[in-house]
């Protein structure tokens, strides 16, 4: 599927789509005239995407998709989607895990440090504990595996890696990430894939944990 | 895929799995000895499912899946999963929509009314507005459709219907749901499907909106 992607720059949800397209060769063009907060509030946009959220995708044969995981799936290829039903189910598991478990904990920890929302010590402590639990789950899973599902990269790896970006960028300083060597190896493999670099550029791992500062 | 499902009773996430299995004929057995809060804290369970969450699935050939949408996918059939890539992408879109948009708003509205969470007027009002927006999106989408994707029931319908259960059960009283006739029609069709009734039994639509009571 080729088409137009509406998003603001540096949107990790849009990265999933653009990286999937790098692997599949799908022609996905980011609309250069899209202005977040303006375009997605126009009647024309809302007629296509009533929730007014991004990323949103308009396929060249008119299909309209408003969810980042669904868009990534549409522009992917069979390898990324999973060849067998068993692999497809496990890929869906990790996509859901990234959305439902990883993302809330990651944002609850990082957003206050970026000044995007008020800091709450209870929530912050809990988020850190949850992130440790999730990193440990991924680390154990990757002890015996190169990729999350099957022998090759899939939407599971792309989705989890893009959701981990802000953690590795802002708070997973070397001492904090030391216990998760298998995960660090996998993440470094991911960000060094040419198809990933083509979308997110050179990624700098966190050297000093960002903390909330009044 | 056949196997054992670990869950507590009346878990809408497990309903998705059991309804999918009703359509596909997959043999999914709920472990009668599972005791929530006890079994899912044992080392044996945590060795298979480190997050200790339910529903969790152990396939008859040993596959382990810990996410309800992935389990439903594994026990489904081709019709439910979507026949074309385009349909599969749209089915994933609605599954994500149920998880990422519907569920948070639904829980934020209903949990305090059930006494599960403290009541917060701001959050409650915002959740109600979000629910209205989502019901309206579904209602418009279903103006010209019998099911959410394609001509037949799919995982999209099962996932969205199960996520809507607590709203239709507790707070969508007749006057509140009156503006969403297409959605009400679709929801009623869903809960009257034999495969759905076999799992959730007779479903009673809300007659009086549950409100928070000190």
């Amino acid at each position: 599927a080729s088409g137009t992607l509406y998003t603001y720059p540096e949107n990790f949800r849009a990265f999933k789509v653009l990286i999937a397209a790098q692997y599949s060769g799908a022609q996905v063009k980011v609309d250069p005239n899209f202005q977040f907060g303006v375009t997605n509030k126009t009647d024309a946009f809302l007629a296509k995407f009533p929730l007014g959220k991004v990323p949103a995708f308009e396929g060249s044969n008119g299909e309209l998709i408003f969810d980042s995981n669904a868009i990534a799936y549409a522009v992917a290829n069979e390898q990324l989607r999973g060849k067998s039903t068993a692999d497809q189910a496990l890929i869906l598991q990790w996509i859901s895990f990234a959305e439902v478990e990883l993302l809330p904990a990651s944002c609850t920890w990082v957003f206050p440090c970026l000044g995007l929302m008020p800091f709450n010590k209870g929530s912050n402590d809990r988020a850190k504990e949850d992130v440790k639990k999730f990193l440990s789950l991924l680390n154990s899973h990757l002890l015996t595996r190169t990729y999350l599902v099957g022998e090759r990269i899939s939407l599971a790896d792309i989705s989890v890696a893009c959701t981990l970006l802000q953690l590795y960028q802002h708070v997973l300083e070397p001492s904090f990430r030391a216990p998760y060597q298998n995960l660090n190896r996998w993440f470094t493999t991911m960000i060094n894939q040419p198809q990933v670099k083509a979308v997110i550029g050179n990624f700098e791992l966190c050297s000093k944990m960002l903390t909330f500062d009044n | 895929a056949s196997g054992t499902l670990y869950t507590y009773p009346e878990n809408f996430r497990a309903f998705k799995v059991l309804i999918a299995a009703q359509y596909s004929g997959a043999q999914v057995k709920v472990d009668p000895n599972f005791q929530f809060g006890v079994t899912n804290k044992t080392d044996a369970f945590l060795a298979k499912f480190p997050l200790g969450k339910v529903p969790a699935f152990e396939g008859s050939n040993g596959e382990l899946i810990f996410d309800s949408n992935a389990i439903a996918y594994a026990v489904a059939n081709e019709q439910l999963r979507g026949k074309s890539t385009a349909d599969q992408a749209l089915i994933l879109q609605w599954i994500s929509f149920a998880e990422v948009e519907l569920l948070p708003a639904s829980c934020t509205w209903v949990f305090p009314c059930l006494g599960l969470m403290p009541f917060n007027k701001g959050s409650n009002d915002r959740a109600k507005e979000d629910v209205k927006k989502f019901l309206s999106l579904l209602n418009s989408h279903l103006l010209t459709r019998t099911y959410l994707v394609g001509e037949r029931i799919s995982l999209a319908d099962i996932s969205v219907a199960c996520t809507l259960l607590q709203l239709y059960q507790h707070v969508l009283e007749p006057s509140f749901r009156a503006p969403y006739q297409n959605l009400n029609r679709w929801f009623t069709t869903m809960i009257n499907q034999p495969q759905v009734k076999a799992v959730i039994g007779n479903f009673e639509l809300c007659s009086k909106m549950l409100t928070f009571d000190n």
Binding site: F36, K53 | Y8, Q35, V38, T108, L116
Partner: peptide, 30 residues
């Protein structure tokens, strides 16, 4: 960037709801 990120759909309070749901069903099942 800040405006955009802050608009992201994220269930920040999810862990509170998870805990509440867990507690309720654990009590119900015991």
């Amino acid at each position: 960037m800040a405006l955009e990120l802050a608009s992201e759909t994220v269930w920040f309070e999810k862990w509170r709801y998870d805990d509440a749901e867990c507690k309720y069903h654990e009590q119900k099942n015991q």
